[in-house]
Write a protein that binds this DNA or RNA. Structure first.
Length: 426
RNA sequence: GGAGCAAUACCCAAGAGGCCGAAGGGGCUCCCCUGCUAAGGGAGUAGUACGAGUGAAUCGUAGCGAGGGUUCAAAUCCCUCUUGCUCCGCCA
């Protein structure tokens, strides 16, 4: 959510920034509603002040035995005017709210406009693995090693689901444990949130109302705001933990991480390129979130990017870090860096982590504030999130990049302690 | 899932249509006395949102879990919802 006062002060600047995201807006109508809203408030509050004043006189007049019937009639008329004004105000506020909450976040100034083609590779890590043989894809490798059972996954739940088995399950779990131990070392608090969330969480994170059809609803009601949905990322839970609260400034930054499966419909996105574990309806992810002071959120952003890269680097994978163009950042985000891992069989880089700074966009939507020690007043804080990491994307990369000519897979060294010292899966 | 009870400021709590933005405690802040880790006396203590005004002060409006209703007037009466507690049922 953007601040209407900021828009009112700088409508051209705001619409220019939104245009970088490919979002065209005209604020003329919005600003007219706002003027009308303030005018209405002024009128209705004048009536209310009058009502309060007269109401206070009535018991006194009654005590003195003076007639009050005339006043009652007058007050009744005033009551009607107040009700009309309140209604008008509520309608205007609803229109303004709907307009504002449909606007995406402003991209940071340094982002290039446009879509994917303007993403910029910031850094490439580790060398691209060379094979002295024709590398296999992760689907074949995992199937032949009994790590993933695609057929039985489909039997249980249909297309887009699979079973992790044996060393596949253990490798996935080892990855999760590795990530968790790294975050604990860095002083992040571990959270296990509910997987079913109320509508307000989706709204606060900025995913609703626009993307309400892309999640799974549990016992959907006619009115979605009364239903729960399966979280599409732990960010949706973590970013709403302090909604409506005013946090002590000394507690910032607050750093959390959570492991949850992520549930997504991914409707219409099935492609040959996305076979196997690249895109499923349920995948595992460890998500990091920080609540930061606005003055220090850029620093927090760098920290999260650094952490995500460090995890990948320690796994010895070949990957790259990309700074996304404005139009490729999701609606809620002011800036996003993606970590993309090399998938040899596809010859492309696939996203395993997305680190973003929402600035105060999410905090405004769910009213998360801190008390500014300088002014003594509450102020919206900044929320940041980053995958750290999506195991279900990392695992195919490991399987493919670490494959051997005989179809076995060497276990990255950092994972061995989590797999009872196992060096090769065969 | 069924039944009953509750929700008031940082915490506890009174309040039962107007004199209630709300008694009284506790806590916290400040002052006095005493004087050294006791005790006493006094003062202050709704945050917040919105609007007017502006570098400010200040004023107004809303707000007693949330949303509606009755009434000239609602913390107080009525309805719906949410959350918590107790009992019953079911169950990892």
């Amino acid at each position: 959510m953007l601040d209407i006062k900021m828009i009112a002060e700088n409508p051209q600047k705001v619409s220019a920034a939104l245009l970088k995201k490919g979002h065209e807006v005209d604020f003329t109508e919005l600003l007219a509603w706002d003027t009308e809203r303030r005018q209405t408030i002024y009128e209705v509050e004048t009536f209310k002040a009058q009502k309060n004043k007269v109401s206070a006189d009535i018991p006194r007049l009654k005590k003195e035995g003076k007639p009050v019937d005339g006043i009652f009639a007058e007050m009744k008329e005033l009551g009607v005017k107040i009700a009309e004004g309140d209604k008008k105000q509520a309608e205007l506020e609803k229109k303004i709210f709907d307009f504002l909450c449909a606007l995406p976040n402003l991209p940071d100034d340094d982002l290039l406009p446009g879509e994917k083609e303007n993403n910029e590779v910031v850094k490439v890590y580790n060398s691209k693995p060379e094979f002295g043989f024709e590398p296999k894809n992760h689907v074949d490798l995992c199937t032949s090693l009994g790590m993933i059972d695609y057929e039985r996954g489909v039997k249980l739940s249909g297309n887009g689901y699979w079973l992790y088995r044996n060393w596949g399950a253990r490798l996935e779990w080892a990855l999760l444990n590795f990530f968790i131990s790294e975050h604990l070392n860095d002083g992040y608090e571990m959270i296990l949130p509910p997987h079913q969330l109320g509508y307000n969480c989706g709204f606060g994170a900025g995913q609703f109302p626009k993307f309400a059809d892309e999640v799974y609803w549990v016992d959907p009601e006619e009115d979605k705001t009364k239903s729960k949905f399966m979280l599409p990322t732990a960010e949706t839970a973590l970013v709403n933990m302090y909604a409506g609260e005013i946090i002590d400034e000394a507690k910032l930054p607050m750093k959390f991480f959570a492991y949850t499966p992520c549930y997504r419909k991914e409707a219409g996105s099935a492609r040959a390129e996305e076979r196997g574990m690249i895109r499923g309806h349920q995948f595992n992810k460890v998500e990091m979130v920080q609540y930061a002071h606005p003055d220090h959120s850029m620093q927090a952003f760098e920290e999260l990017v650094g952490k995500a890269c460090s995890l990948m680097d320690k796994l010895g994978l070949h990957f790259r870090l990309s700074k996304l163009a404005a139009g490729d950042c999701s609606a809620s985000m002011a800036r996003t860096y993606d970590i993309e891992v090399w998938i040899p069989s596809m010859g492309i880089y696939k996203e395993v982590s997305s680190v973003s700074n929402a600035n105060d966009y999410q905090a405004r939507r769910n009213n998360t504030r801190f008390r500014d020690s300088k002014t003594g007043r509450p102020q919206f804080l900044h929320t940041l999130n980053g995958s750290g990491l999506a195991t279900s994307r990392v695992m195919p990369a490991i399987v493919e990049q670490y494959q051997n000519a005989d179809g076995s897979i060497t276990v990255p060294e950092v994972l061995r302690p989590f797999l009872g010292g196992l060096e090769v899966i065969k």
